[in-house]
Design a protein around this nucleic acid. Structure first.
Lengths: 242, 242
DNA sequence: GTAAACATTATGTCAGACAAAGTTTTCGAA
DNA sequence: TTCGAAAACTTTGTCTGACATAATGTTTAC
């Protein structure tokens, strides 16, 4: 006897479209239909359960994956918030880290060409407004640094302004993730907090070069900045090998 | 009466170390203790449940996340297999894709500097053996191409040989993922199968330059190769906008 | 008016049951 | 004996329900 109800697939609209019936697609559709933006809250899980027609575990597995990818953030009591868009595809790289010091150098090796290319693109493509912002961020960075405060947030804002001017979000996303990995490894095992602080004075002429449209000079200065960080990293790596 | 058993935390060794008690760490420890290698099978979920002392949903959420990152692959009846190592850190980027054609161009924009830097590093650092392999792969590619067969696997092997010679796995991992995304979007919506086929003849002098240690020439040729692909991509993008 | 106490909301974890899809074993016929 | 199909088994996939835990919102007491 068929005593158990078969899992009730969604009831709404099954007329025409043969959409793939999985949680990610359903969630994306809901986000689009609802017009949810970055920063907005998603409906709670139990509401998703009966709006999407999937079980809670299934929905949770997708949400957990999205969290690990950085698409949403989740907190008890506070709900799930969108923190970056996820419409179709995900670029993911599993970083194999065995020897920490070596990994630091490898990350900088990858960051170097990306950062240089980003600066080149920004120099060529930035709008007048964006050039103004880049200049302002550089001035801010120098001011914070000379005041002896923690300059790292300002540094981050400066580079972010440059990345935005490239018109290609991927640069920012990849470099951001590399830096995040870098700090994950770096902060904990070694002590030094202010890696790269000698590079700060270089940021002023760098901003000037970008604003002036001098691509070669901007690229050269960026290379200098990163190479200084690389050299420091190398030194740390060597100390670590003793 | 206290009829329900409190969640039995692990029974084994709780003497000294204050390890973080989460599923990923427990799983990594199990993989290390067991000496599991890439390709090996993990114990089934129900066994993990009582060996690690977590609930099945909790373990599943971690496993699902690892699958989405590409660390394991899972199949009904066949179990969960390790397909790449995941020791400590993961670099992940959520690619925001709205307009497909534009995304293709952006991906090439990011790939360009990475590929060029990889070639530079390979030119400087490759061992004699690695140079031999690069040469062989180039010859192979040309041969396959002239025979009129599908040259893409050979192309992939050639670039992989170059990436390996950099001594930095990250280049290969990131570029591989970018190409994978690229093909995910590319193959389906547009028809053309042989994007970049005009670049094949350039691979012979490129390999020669790498083997000879001529970094500038190698870099220049790589730039030419990618720019040709970029130009084709751009054309496709424009056609798509009609 | 402020702060503590309580109630509400939402995610985190666990447990049990069944479904679906592979994998291995069994068994019969050529 | 060997090959192929069916049956049995294994393992992941999904659903449901319950309780724990943490953040937020509201009320109450001083």
């Amino acid at each position: 006897m068929p005593g158990k109800a078969p899992p009730k697939k969604l009831s709404s609209q099954e007329h025409a479209a043969e959409k793939p019936r999985d949680v990610p697609h359903a969630l994306i559709k809901l986000i689009e239909d609802e017009g949810l933006q970055v920063g907005d809250r998603l409906p709670p899980e139990l509401e998703l359960v009966h709006r999407l027609g999937f079980g809670r575990s299934t929905i949770r597995e997708t949400l957990k994956t999205w969290e690990s990818i950085g698409v949403v953030s989740r907190n008890k009591g506070a709900g799930t918030r969108l923190i970056s868009e996820m419409s179709r595809n995900t670029l993911r790289v599993a970083l194999t880290i065995k020897h920490e010091a070596e990994s630091l150098i490898r990350m900088q090796q990858v960051r170097r060409p990306l950062e240089i290319e980003a600066v080149r693109l920004a120099t060529r493509l930035a709008s007048p407004d964006q050039r103004r912002v880049i200049n302002a961020r550089a001035a801010e960075l120098i001011a914070v640094f000379e005041a002896g405060e923690d300059w790292r947030p300002a540094d981050h804002r400066f580079h972010k302004a440059v990345h935005e001017a490239t018109g290609n979000l991927l640069f920012e996303q990849i470099i951001d993730q590399i830096l995040k990995c870098f700090h994950d490894i770096y902060e904990t095992p070694f002590g030094k907090p202010h890696l790269g602080q000698d590079t700060i004075p270089l940021h002023k002429p760098l901003a000037a070069a970008i604003v002036a449209g001098d691509e070669e000079k901007a690229a050269e200065l960026t290379a200098r900045v990163i190479d200084m960080v690389c050299a420091e990293t190398q030194k740390i790596a060597e100390e670590c090998n003793d």
